[in-house]
Amino acid sequence: MDKKKKRLIFRSIVLAILAGTLVFVLIVNAGSERPSLQEGVEAPNFKLDRLDQEGESIELHDLRGQGVMVNFWATYCEPCKEEMPYMDQLYEEYQDQGIEIVAVSVDRNESVINNFYNRLDLTFPSTHDRNNTVMELYEVVNLPASFFIRPDGTIERIVRGPVTLESLEGYFNEIRPQ
């Protein structure tokens, strides 16, 4: 009967709206917890002043065409300091192949960064994220954290924790321009 059909349609619509609202709420809720930075998405742009070259700054966007490793570290983080020599060792070799390293220190004082840099005689660009804005932008909580960015500006790999010499070489080969 017509009436029966109407009733079924009405009930179906009400139930569908309620179920839809529930699914929507659950998705919104789940989305608020998941970090939005994932492998495959475009790496957010930033511009930081260089500590190793007075008056110079480095903007991620300008490095398009190169494979970029963005490394978050601090002098009070022991594992960060241990992976620095590996980065330096490979930098000499891979810089000519189109790999750039940006070390972003989240320390408070420039002097501690410079002290460490000079002591190890590191050659790749050193920057200082004074107010931790870039760190928050990249949703970094624990140090060290490294982002390997393809020449087209998208993230190839996120490494939370230290890298080894071997693994680092593998990551560099992933983002090396062809």
């Binding site: 009070y76 408070r108 004082n109 420039e110 002290n115």
Partner: peptide
């Protein structure tokens, strides 16, 4: 502590004090 300069110049006696290491904590 916020600035943590690497050295100080004592003008009265023209002496340099250099900060070799700085450990916040």
């Amino acid at each position: 502590s916020d600035e943590a300069p690497p050295e100080f110049h004592l003008e009265e006696s023209d002496i340099m004090v250099s900060v070799d290491d700085w450990y916040p904590e």
